[in-house]
Amino acid sequence: MEEMVCIECPNGCVLTVENKDGEIIVGNYKCKKGITFAKTELLSPKRTISSIVRTVFPDIPVIPVRVSGDIPKDRIFDVIEEINQIRLDKRVGRGHIIIDNVLGLGVNIIATSSILINT
């Protein structure tokens, strides 16, 4: 039996994970998110990441972005590399897609602030 910290919410439950004849048994969770988390974490761990992109606007040199959904943990730095290439020259708002389907992972890089349009 393995222990695993669930990162789905601030509770940070210490889950127990057991592989019983190919079936994954999760224990010690406070909510169902724990079960999903443990299973994914064992098979193909996923994470959310946030970063910033450079803009061409001197008043707002960078704006915050994040992935619209979880990405495989082992692709984090590949995605960051894509974000690093961007230089934003349009005043876009919160939710605007900055990179569509990044690296074919099925998620977008979206702006998480409207500071460029609300200044």
Partner: peptide
């Protein structure tokens, strides 16, 4: 919150994983 660009805000309030700027806005 403007500089807390990581996610994890709003789980209790909006049942969503938001970044700081999104939550604030």
């Amino acid at each position: 919150l403007k500089q807390c660009i990581h996610d994890g805000f709003g789980l209790l309030r909006f049942n969503e994983k938001l970044s700081g700027p999104e939550y604030a806005e």
